[in-house]
Design a protein around this nucleic acid. Structure first.
Lengths: 351, 351
DNA sequence: GACAGCAACCAAAGCGCTTTGGATTGATTC
DNA sequence: GAATCAATCCAAAGCGCTTTGGTTGCTGTC
């Protein structure tokens, strides 16, 4: 069923039927009702390609998800983010176009999306420091929202981000308040903007409390389980082990826990851990009581916010860029406890 | 730059340029070269919407990913599957259209995709027993490949699946060979086809070896970490605890390990575990030595296979349906050991 | 009674491509 | 030398929609 058929059934012109369906005023209410009823009865759906051709708009949003070339890792938060954004698209009758791309090919893909006009806008995933994609998208004039931030010049583009700096500053202070002073930071790759900010927050709190961050206790790698295991094992077996870990990802924290338990210790007793929890649907942080104490912020709702913001920008172009900074909750779970006394004693002894 | 402009630059008709670019024979090789060079130089890209309108084909594959309504869980294998399929699409210049849909809305979405003609084919994710989507897609005549199987009538449609039954049969036999006879099955939701088959494999092995599967040791739920924790804890504290667990997902196994260690035991000593490992990029099963003994099959390469198969079906319609059954590897890791002697002794005592 | 103004409708062009049904050439055949 | 044929090329229709630039008929105004 297409417009032509529908309008001939109704004995109206295509123009009138199109206008009736799209809410234009130069059509009587009576006619509009008739048209809408007929459209429903005949199960008429406008062909999106034809609509796109005629209008230049596509009702499609592009998501380019980068796959790390070295490790072939797909970001685990991606599925939940997409689920959040997808809900919004479904509600607003938009489609989502996905390109999975080796990170080196990204620029080409973005240019292609823009020049082909296959999408009305894009969401930028996994921004790095001074990410070139921001300038690129501004240059080609494609509306976009960044999930996260891309370094300096925050005001020049639209983004939705968690206040990573503040979250990790608070988490660090929380550990210090519990008496910990040897705190390890198990971070993600620090070319990623979010990881850099988390490190800043950690350092700010440490210095603010007069503590010297130990370089050997700060690591930055792709956030796998094995990374957590390896690094934690190494640190805990070293002469001056940490008593607490601040960990960028739940998956890495699972590796840390494995190392801790392999060495015959217990989380939330000899060793404390605070993680950042993205509230991934398939990896919930416990049920009633969180397994890990955590800074918490739902990646799924970030997906919703990004999508909503982008649709808004597309609907009303020419506005100043928009930003949304989310504060993470700090939730206490089973993985934190006061720094062990023995340690304190031993350290006092050394002085 | 569009066809019209390009052809006027070349002094040729749109027809000829179009034919030259699309490899039709009625164009001289000399002209074809000129046209291709000009297209490259002018960075010409055909507008996919216009192409779609004219041909009825869209070079787009639909992926409908269901989100469980009860638990709002996005399947964790999804990201890696998509990465695999996405590679294939990129290579073949196809796009991927993603719809995230509450499982109750699925039928509507599939019908919409078909009637709007927004995709040339779809991949069916997470098939359930006697999944209605198979009949639906056959009815509307949209090419499709199922990732997994949808119960009976395997020969009537195209699919790519792991031999779940055989994998779990082997895994069970492996545990029995190690002397285990109280083996727990921590399965996924058994309305899912894959989970049902795994259960069958488990039961077949048990019965084949003269063991009576204990109903209280067989569970079936959404595969979260907490599910593993809760169920394992419960089973291990019961009067007749299992000595081994067969677990459908790595994430659930992580919960099981947590329970085991909470109770002061060790995996690969008092308690053995075999999992199914989908080789998720962000959740590798250890580095050199697998953390968990596992039946292993890469979900990413399943994504590639599904996509390749679907593109093939689209290119050459009218062929009989195609199937691909993958055998999982059985890899031995740190989580399995012979059944503890004490148990054997205690059991002997009871007789 | 002429005219403006308005509400309601429509014909046809246009979006950028493919494809049908020729047209034009030069070579080949008898 | 006329007819045939293959090789190239082209004009124009068509895909299904939106939108421009109307037309038509009616009401109200002076």
């Amino acid at each position: 069923m297409n417009l032509k058929e529908l309008s001939s059934i109704l004995g109206l012109s295509q123009t009138t039927v199109s206008r009736a369906l799209n809410g234009y005023p130069e059509v009587s209410e009576e006619t509009r009702r008739r048209v809408k009823a007929a459209a429903r009865d005949n199960n008429y759906r406008p062909n999106p390609r034809a609509m796109g051709l005629a209008t230049g708009r596509t009702r499609t949003i592009g998501h380019v998800i980068p796959v790390s070339t070295q490790h072939e890792i797909v970001n685990p938060i991606f599925a939940d983010f997409i689920a959040g954004a997808g809900e919004v698209y479904a509600r607003n009758d938009y489609d989502m176009l996905l390109s999975v791309v080796a990170d080196v090919d990204e620029e080409r893909i973005y240019r292609q999306l823009a020049s082909r006009g296959s999408v009305d806008g894009v969401i930028v995933h996994g921004p790095r420091e001074n990410d070139p994609r921001v300038a690129l998208l501004q240059e080609v004039g494609l509306p976009f929202v960044v999930h996260g931030r891309a370094g300096a010049g925050d005001g020049a583009y639209s983004w939705v981000d968690v206040n990573n700096r503040h979250a990790f500053e608070r988490a660090t202070n929380f550990l210090i308040d519990l008496g910990h002073d040897r705190i390890a930071l198990i971070n993600g790759v620090e070319t990623m903007d979010f990881a850099r900010r988390r490190r800043e927050g950690f350092l700010k709190a440490m210095k603010g409390r007069g503590l010297h961050p130990d370089a050997s206790l700060m690591r930055s790698e792709e956030m796998t389980e094995f990374y957590g295991y390896r690094v934690a094992r190494e640190m805990l077996m070293a002469p001056a082990p940490p008593t607490a870990f601040l960990i960028s990802s739940m998956i890495t924290a699972i590796g840390v826990r494995r190392a801790v338990e392999d060495l015959g210790m217990k989380l939330g007793r000899e060793v404390s851990v605070v993680i950042h929890d993205d509230e991934l649907s398939y990896l919930r942080n416990g049920e009633d009581i969180p397994i890990f104490s955590a800074t918490r912020s739902s990646v799924r709702s970030a997906g919703q916010l990004c999508a909503d913001m982008l649709l808004d920008i597309i609907r009303q172009p020419g506005q100043p860029p928009r930003q949304r900074l989310l504060e993470a909750e700090l939730t206490v779970g089973l993985s934190t406890a006061p720094a062990p006394k023995i340690e304190t004693a031993r350290r006092a002894e050394r002085r």
